[in-house]
Design a protein around this nucleic acid. Structure first.
Lengths: 302, 302
DNA sequence: AACATTTTAGACTCATAGTACAAAAGGAGC
DNA sequence: GCTCCTTTTGTACTATGAGTCTAAAATGTT
């Protein structure tokens, strides 16, 4: 990397951590990095962009450190998860990032806010996936809720714990909160209370493709169901083949094409729907609804 | 209230809620309130002060609304607590205060930050006391922890819930989080895990007087214990009286005087300590330690 | 040495918080 | 209607900070 750019990133990082975002002026950064204003704006178009550049790599480092703890270990081991949480929080503490991140996420700078919100979501996603490792697929419907409230508990407990014992290892807090969590997993899977369905994760992270993936299993089953219906029906072999072709076409087009030809697909579906074999069949209505939904999601993507 | 001041407060409130704190300039407020700059600085010494003035009354209103739900009801009724939580969150939502408060608490303006942090602490305190109403004095050692993580769960659950279903009643979230809490009360009182002792509440809220109150009971008992020791001892009646006088003096001076005469009190304690009656008595050491501690707290206050 | 790129310093614009102050407006008492 | 006092206004001013622009200097390349 260009030395001037590196000087800027280093000085900016230090000053942001020390004084916060607002309170660090570009002038400050220039003085601490021996770089002139002209050069600054040669590398970054704004203070926001600089911030994002600095903390993108910081986030990256923290995630890598956390990921390394997992190698060669059982993903379902509680202790590993606790160590990962502890590691992340220790880095937050070591680099005094709490207040800075709070400032950035609450900032009125739209770019910054979006950047930080996205990182917060990535944290929730990571936690969600780790909880699935720990507690198993069967608990999945409740795990987004739990990931969210786990993060909330951890944040707040850390905040107030720091007030009562500054410079302490966060491990006690992580353990405390994790112990609570294990009880809540049992609790919610017994009472079957759900607040936010896990599919919202993909919605929030703006990954509509994932929504399709979530629906894929169900769609495959419904598709197979339709085929069975056709095979068992009393229509001509030719019609059967025709219908099956349509089903395969829709499946491929809808799930595997990059740019599905939605209109064509709908037309094919309509012609199939006209066959009296499907009249009054509930499965046909379900199938059509699923095609509609996935089509809607996929058009939104492109 | 002066009409000009009211105009300012009203316009400021509206603009802060609409655009946030940073993004609302004083110029904006002046234009929306038909007040000139001179008058503005006649009533408020800064934008910070204006904000604090505006939201002090907002907080006041929200707390009053919440308090009114309790009148004529059983303080240990779960449903009432849920309604109170719901009421508070609905007001937050109605007036779109979430993002604004986040901005203020993370702000680099020291005044603002302190104001918001103090309000956050008052929230924790309120929750702590209500949890004591609900779950009883016996759970007290764990209730600060629970108040903290309850608040954290609620904040985070609300944040993400709003993302998935904007404009919804927060009641579902409150219920969900409260149900989790009831389990955690059992959980922590069984495992006896404690993270932050409740006395920290008074420390955080900068109410050292409360620390004295907490110790008062214990000090009274120790004091009485000392008196019994004296009565039962084989020293002259005169010495007994002298010692009792000292004990009473220390008690009054230490706990009831506005400005306790610490040095005088210590001298008296020393002379008493010299009496061989107390030699090797463990209670004397305890008593002296307690006097020291309370004296330390009380000198810090004044 | 000639040319190309990077870097610099500082002048400039614009927005904003807060100060200062003289002039105008608006009562209250007579 | 006049006087005295307070409130209000408008405007000019200082200071700070983000971001633009540019001519000149420094540095690198062929």
């Amino acid at each position: 990397m260009n030395p001037k750019k590196k000087q800027l990133l280093d000085a900016a990082y230090q000053l942001f951590v020390e004084k916060g975002y607002q309170s660090t002026s570009i002038q400050d950064i220039l003085e601490h990095s021996n770089v002139s204003k002209g050069t600054f704006y040669n590398y970054f178009s704004s203070k926001n962009e600089l911030f994002i550049d600095v903390f993108n790599t910081v986030f990256e480092k923290m995630r890598t450190a956390r990921k390394e703890i997992l190698v060669g270990r059982d993903v379902s081991d509680y202790e590993t998860f606790i160590q990962q949480g502890n590691c992340y929080l220790e880095l937050m503490q070591k680099y005094k990032l709490y207040t800075l991140f709070e400032e950035a996420i609450a900032s009125n700078e739209k770019e910054l806010k979006t950047f930080m919100e996205n990182n917060r979501l990535l944290e929730i996603e990571w936690t969600f996936e780790r909880l699935r490792d720990l507690f198993g697929q069967t608990k999945e419907p409740y795990l987004l809720d739990l990931a969210v409230i786990y993060t909330g508990m951890l944040q707040y407990a850390m905040y107030f714990f720091r007030q009562s014992e500054p410079n302490t290892q966060p491990e006690r807090v992580v353990r405390y909160v994790f112990n609570r969590l294990t009880h809540l997993v049992e609790d919610v899977s017994r009472t079957e209370e759900q607040l936010i369905p896990p599919r919202f994760l993909s919605v929030w992270l703006d990954r509509p493709q994932d929504e399709v993936v979530i629906r894929k299993d169900l769609f495959e089953k419904t598709s197979a169901h339709m085929k069975r219906l056709i095979t068992l029906s009393s229509i001509s072999e030719e019609s059967k083949e025709a219908h099956e072709e349509v089903l395969d076409f829709i499946y491929e087009e809808l799930l595997e094409r990059k740019k599905p030809k939605i209109h064509l697909l709908r037309r094919a579906l309509e012609t199939m729907d006209e066959d009296p074999v499907f009249a009054g069949q509930e499965i046909m209505a379900t199938y059509k609804a699923m095609v509609d939904e996935i089509a809607r999601i996929r058009t939104k993507t492109s």
